[in-house]
Design a protein around this nucleic acid. Structure first.
Lengths: 231, 231
DNA sequence: CAAGTCTGTCACCAAGCTGTAACAGATCGG
DNA sequence: CCGATCTGTTACAGCTTGGTGACAGACTTG
């Protein structure tokens, strides 16, 4: 599901225009007509990004941005400023508030979504996941490598994700349905038995180093990754 | 230690804000309120880069840039112009004077530092980073050279930046999107598959010395530069 | 300005991966 | 020991992904 974006813009026409484009691009959109309204929205639920008009009645976008930067909870909230074509004042403000990007009106929908994507990618660079290690098996998501001692194992994408999940949730039994949800994704419709096949493929690869025994079958319940012996 | 940057800007507020952001980004900052003052600073110590406001009282930024280009000592000094206007004419004139880049107000702090880095990488004779070395391949940003043992390799600009990024972030998998952000830049609209083509071109060149195997494809995830065997 | 270089895109092909079905084997309760 | 379930294994057709060569346009460079 797309990111949750809060659009703060007093001009209804522009707000609608932006909202429609964001929705079409697959984002979830919330709206606010003023900085005050925006604060309430943010207090309720932290959005993933704010599109903030810098000229607003009452508290200006600049003021809001400034306040958001002060609060720990909202300090890292990505902000994209919407500005009219302008000069010096904007520059001062922009540097001061530390907005993540600027989009100058008029802007194309394509430009807007491209910038949003860029900022989101930049801000949330999948917090460097740690490498896992279970029973002599090592898996590092950053390098996308699986190794057992000196030997390195080659896994397909699905087997990799499957092993990744198992290694980050070891010693627990996971039903086929749970595995499908976690590894394949909730919305995917796939036969339960498919899990078996991938478990088999995973085991076949792990067997190269004898680590296939880590994956245990729990009859009637599912599978479990465990460093302990089987019984 | 960061590069030494001279900020030439007559408006105190803007100068301060720029300075604060550059300091935060790890640069050393010197300030000048006029072109004349800037000349004295430069005469005293040659900075690594100049941020030059287009409009200055007395001698304009353009004039200063032009003069710097005439002196052998300052001919290769990187210059980034700050301008409020965005018209084509300005850019033409600016490029004529030999500015290395243009930053149009308003701009984000990130944009500014990104441009500075880009210009430094491209031009700076002494402020650049160190050479990298992976798996017998050497890349020196200062001399803009890539060599494998005795042999020297010729790369196009994009391939060079791509290899540079990979070599400074080895062993990690980078998705196409990440590579586009890092090597091409956030604001560029380019097809993801274009990365493939440049990877291929890079590999083709590296194949001259057998180093093409360093670049590994991680199916479904992206690419990785690694000294370890492919597997 | 002309030749050459670099870039981004595309179409096509090869290779690898995936989900299913079908069958074989294993396990369990009685 | 038997039937009923559950799981392991295999083969395979279809799909997705990445590699490759060609090409037009932009950009350099002499």
């Amino acid at each position: 599901m797309g990111a949750d974006i809060l659009v703060v813009e007093d001009e209804p026409a522009i707000q609608d225009l932006v909202a429609v484009n964001l929705l079409r691009a697959g984002y979830q959109v919330r709206k606010a007509f003023s900085a005050e309204e925006a604060q309430l929205e943010i207090k309720a639920t932290l959005p993933d990004l704010i599109l903030l008009d810098w000229m607003l009645p009452g508290m200006s976008g600049i003021d809001l941005a400034r306040r958001l930067r002060l609060e720990p909870r909202t300090r890292d909230l990505p902000i994209i400023m919407l500005t009219a074509r302008s000069g010096e004042v904007d520059k001062v403000v922009g540097l001061e508030t530390g907005a993540d990007d600027f989009v100058t009106k008029p802007f194309s929908p394509r430009e807007l979504t491209a910038r949003i994507q860029a900022v989101l990618r930049r801000r949330a660079p999948h917090a460097a996941e740690e490498a896992s290690c279970v029973g002599g098996l090592q898996l590092d998501p950053r390098t996308h490598r699986v190794s057992a001692g000196a030997a390195e194992l080659k896994l397909g994408p699905t087997e990799f994700r499957l092993l990744h999940f198992l290694m980050t949730h070891p010693e627990r039994v996971h039903s086929r349905v749970q595995l499908l949800d976690q590894v394949w994704g909730d919305h995917v419709f796939v036969e339960e038995r498919t899990v078996d096949v991938h478990i088999r493929r995973l085991r076949a690869t792990l067997a190269q180093t004898g680590h296939d025994t880590l994956i245990q079958t729990v009859r009637g319940n599912g599978y479990r990754l465990s460093a302990k012996p089987k019984n």
